[in-house]
């Protein structure tokens, strides 16, 4: 299935915004799945590679977002994040492609005005909270509200 005219326009807008605020993000195909990949650097100077899967029904679904680097990402206790599965405390959903999937928005709170930029902003905040967790052992719930 190709992208509709409206979706193509939307993708262009998404790219225009990301070029301004998250310029490292670019389109990649993972198999037949269109994704956006790029790097985010936290205040603690940790580097994380993020992959955002462009939903086929763009802009009507929450895009899945995973952390592809560091691979084998571990929590404060040394547990692999992928082994935590869906975790409310850590704001994680079931892993995709063997990488931890970040919970950004509940689908019931999603709307078409939410851009990839906003999603990546939430990912950026999740990463700051995760860095906080690595230092303090506090769950991400300590830092983040569920939305």
């Amino acid at each position: 299935m190709g992208w509709t005219y409206e979706q193509q326009n939307r993708l262009q807008r998404e790219v225009d915004i990301l070029n301004q605020y998250f310029p490292s993000f670019a389109f990649v195909y993972i198999g037949s799945q269109l994704c956006m990949e790029g790097w985010l650097i936290t205040n603690s100077k940790n580097n994380y590679k993020i992959r955002l899967y462009v939903p086929k029904d763009l802009p009507y679904s929450v895009p899945d977002v995973i952390i592809t680097y560091p691979t084998q990402l571990k929590d404060y206790y040394g547990r692999l994040l992928v082994n935590l599965g869906a975790s409310a405390n850590m704001h994680l959903l079931s892993p995709i492609d063997n990488s931890p999937k970040i919970c950004t928005y509940r689908s019931t709170n999603w709307n078409a005005n939410i851009t990839f930029y906003k999603v990546l902003m939430k990912v950026r905040i999740w990463l700051e909270a995760f860095d906080g967790h690595l230092k303090t052992s506090n769950d991400l719930d300590y830092y983040l509200k569920h939305q």
Partner: peptide, 13 residues
């Protein structure tokens, strides 16, 4: 109407 439908639209946890 149904749990399985509700589950589709809520976080797994």
């Amino acid at each position: 109407q149904k749990e399985r439908q509700a589950k589709k639209f809520l976080p797994e946890y």
